[in-house]
Design a protein around this nucleic acid. Sequence first.
DNA 1: AAGGACATGTAACACGTTACATGATTGA
DNA 2: TCAATCATGTAACGTGTTACATGTCCTT
Lengths: 183, 183
Amino acid sequence: MKRILKYAILGLVHKQEMSGYDITSQFKQEIGQFWSAKHSQIYPELKRLTEEELIEYRTSITGAKLEKKLYCITPKGTQELIEWLVSPKELPETEKDEFMLMLYFSAAVPKEKSKRLFEDQIAKRKRKLEHLYESKKSLQLLDENLQAPGSRQFGHYLVLSRAINREESYIAWLEETLSLFEE
Amino acid sequence: MKRILKYAILGLVHKQEMSGYDITSQFKQEIGQFWSAKHSQIYPELKRLTEEELIEYRTSITGAKLEKKLYCITPKGTQELIEWLVSPKELPETEKDEFMLMLYFSAAVPKEKSKRLFEDQIAKRKRKLEHLYESKKSLQLLDENLQAPGSRQFGHYLVLSRAINREESYIAWLEETLSLFEE
DNA sequence: AAGGACATGTAACACGTTACATGATTGA
DNA sequence: TCAATCATGTAACGTGTTACATGTCCTT
């Protein structure tokens, strides 16, 4: 991967003017299911992108003296963003998953222990799925035409929809596989 | 993540004596779908684990003078491995996916471009899925009782089965979502 | 004889997290 | 007034990739 965070930030500030804090907040929303970064990584990257003239900022004052830097994308930044947006993406050879790594070695522990770990993982993923369903419900209230490309919230819809697909299929696999242990 | 590579290596050398090169090769096999590392990360980690007395090695000579270090796990290492194997795993808050990040911003490009990217991604994932099916077929020839916990290849079966589930459901979502663009 | 696999290591750099550090604003 | 949130930054450390560096063995 070559500087994906760069494109994540370009994509966010392309939609609208944003501060480093706003970007950090965005990564705690839906898109955080597929990409995120901490503020300690974001601020230096904003500085770098500014030096590279891909973004620029104006300073805005909230209240008496709280300063924030509102970043927006430059034409050069837009160009690089679009190039990335239309370039085919390689599949990662590895999509890391600690739980699956553990399962690979699970012959070393009693079946009962493994069953408990499956149940724990299923419960956690079901909780997560519930949150995703609620987010989707909220989103549908905002935009009835959600599933149409061109809808204002279509990007949001896609990531939520895929996040739900990802959790549902993982849970289905976990439940199916757990049943192999019960006989 | 706290030193997952440590546990990956402990798990591998617990099954059988192995060299750094062997470990590197393992990460190119099925388990590489869920965890991997390059040799440049593995060799220093082996050194560290040896210093921590979680593994130890003997030197073996192939041919006239090609040396390799065969590592095996110590009792202390086994204990730490088992502790990790039975401990519940937190869900990662983010499972990074460059393609989904791109989709989130795809409103900025024409629908035709997005369709092409979906098709490209579907083709790549289908190719990968074919390889996984073939691996599963080979594995089934080795072990008829594959799906029984306790089968010699059960760990292999689990990771392959989940990798297939992961690809199948991703492809299903991609195809379903692509159809939203066609009308 | 040559190329590919076997075998082990280090160095430099890129990416990511946790901790350190500071201060303002808003609402209960 | 106190806690949560808004707001920005740096330092130290841990993880991961690419490149550098070397040498052997086996098969054709």
